[in-house]
Design a protein around this nucleic acid. Structure first.
Length: 424
RNA sequence: GGAGAGAUGACAGAGUGGCCGAAUGUGCUUGAUUCGAAAUCAAGUGAACCCUUACGGGUUCCGAGGGUUCAAAUCCCUCUCUCUCCGCCA
């Protein structure tokens, strides 16, 4: 959520910044609603103040043993007027909230101008795609050749966009999770957290998935408003919801491994082959909650932490800055890390690292106490995948494959594989 | 699943209709005292929002939501969560 004060005082500038991302702010509607809100609120609060004063005098008169009937008569019509004013104000506020919750974050000034993903800017590459001297397979064929990757069983068990892994491959998948968590906790200064995989709608509103993107989620129970998490970002960031953090605890660095569940509504026909786009996948997530002045450095740092995973696995990748038209709803700036997939002859997203400024924090009232002012102020939130485990497995299968169909275990994972050096 | 108890400020804890945004204690901040510290004394110490250039004024918040009333932390209803005991269970 944007700062309502900013929208009130400088709506032209807000509209101009939102235009960069292709969002048209309905300025006149907001201005109209705002003036109505002001009028209603002042009116309502005046009535309330009046009622409070009168009620107080009734109390005093009664205590003094005076006749309170004249005072009661005076206040008689107030209640109804107040009810009407409250109802009107509530309606206006509800409309305003609905608008505010639907406005995306302002892109950071360093975000390149652009319309869609074609305008994203590559900022660096690491390592070179390997040159193969045999006909390469994609991960589906590699996994199938190993007899350890099974989409048919998964579709029998559930439906499309699920997978079953077996044996060494299943173990490699688990090893990746272990490796990533060990790296982030051991070398990057993150605290590991275990969190619920089902969250309530308040949490989803806090990080920005609701109310706008409900169709992307799996609802567990409409009655309770419980949803499966689409990313660990939701439960982990919401740990700070409604809290006032100690300045000494910042920056707060948390990492968590969770499954992620996405309905993938609207992506019919996209990435239907293989385990690139699944309804269920594992991810190790990094979240940082920081003071505003630390935020942009923290985004660079967190992105580097994600890159380290790929470097240690020796997987070629590039980093792109998403352009103003392609950044997500809640983000002010996003770096996508894209790993090289030989099977597709393309770089594909494997991590998305974003700074949300105070956008999420305002929605969830996540604050820290600034010792300089003594006042609670909104934290800045940053998160990124470190990494998407399924896609990392895909990258390993495709990049490490050998002519005979076997796949050597990356050095960084050997200690987790109980002696297995090659998947075969 | 059954029975019971509870949810108040950073924490502990009082408060059963008006004088309660809330006693008291602890903590914290500032000042006094001290060479300094401890102890002691004094003052201050929640949040959100609105109006106002400002000074200042106002509204809301005692788990959440609804209701009764001129007036609700206090009464009524619903829900959530916590604790104790029993049952069941990974």
């Amino acid at each position: 959520m944007l700062d309502p004060k900013l929208i009130r005082t400088d709506i032209a500038s807000v509209a101009a910044q939102l235009k960069r991302r292709g969002y048209v702010l309905d300025v006149s509607a907001i201005e109209q609603l705002e003036s109505k809100r002001k009028q209603c609120q002042v009116h309502t609060e005046t009535l309330q103040s009046e009622r409070n004063a009168k009620s107080k005098s009734i109390g005093k008169a009664k205590a003094a043993g005076e006749d309170i009937q004249p005072l009661l008569d005076e206040v008689a019509g107030l209640g109804e007027a107040l009810d009407r004013a409250k109802a009107e104000l509530g309606e206006v506020q509800q409309q305003m909230d609905a608008i505010l919750l639907g406005i995306p974050n302002l892109p950071h000034e360093s975000v390149p101008e652009g319309k869609d993903e074609n305008d994203n800017v590559e900022i660096r590459r690491w390592s070179e795609p390997r040159v193969f001297d045999f006909e390469i397979k994609d991960h589906v064929d590699v996994g199938d050749g190993l007899g350890q990757l099974d989409f048919e069983s998964a579709s029998k068990l559930t439906g499309s966009r699920f997978v079953v892994m077996r044996g060494q491959l299943a173990r490699l998948h688990r090893a990746l999770i272990q490796f990533m968590l060990d790296l982030h906790t051991g070398e990057h200064g993150y605290e590991e957290v275990y969190v619920p995989y089902i969250v309530n709608s308040d949490s989803l509103r806090g990080t920005g998935q609701l109310p706008k993107f409900e169709e992307d989620l799996f609802c567990v129970d409409a009655e309770t408003g419980y949803f499966l998490i689409p990313t660990a970002e939701v439960p982990v960031t919401n740990l700070a919801r409604g809290e006032i953090l100690d300045a000494d605890d910042l920056p707060l660095r948390l990492t968590s491994h969770t499954p992620c569940f996405r309905s993938e509504a609207g992506s019919y026909g996209k990435d239907t082959r293989g385990m690139i786009r699944q309804h269920q996948f594992e991810k190790v997530e990094m979240v940082q909650l920081v003071k505003p002045e630390q935020a942009w450095d923290a985004l660079e740092e967190l992105t580097a932490h994600a890159e380290t995973v790929l470097q240690k696995l020796d997987l070629p990748y590039r980093v792109v800055t998403l352009c103003s038209g392609d950044i997500g709803f809640s983000a002010a700036k996003t770096y996508d890390i894209e790993v090289w997939l030989p099977g597709q002859q393309a770089y594909r997203e494997i991590s998305s690292c974003s700074c949300f400024t105070d956008f999420q924090a305002r929605r969830m009232q996540a604050r820290w106490r600034n010792p300089d002012t003594g006042k609670p102020e909104l934290v800045y939130s940053i998160n990124g995948s470190g990494l998407a485990v399924g896609r990392t497995l895909v990258a390993i299968l495709e990049n490490y494959q050998q002519a005979d169909g076997s796949v050597p275990v990356p050095d960084a994972l050997k200690s987790y594989m109980n002696g297995i050096k090659v998947l075969q």
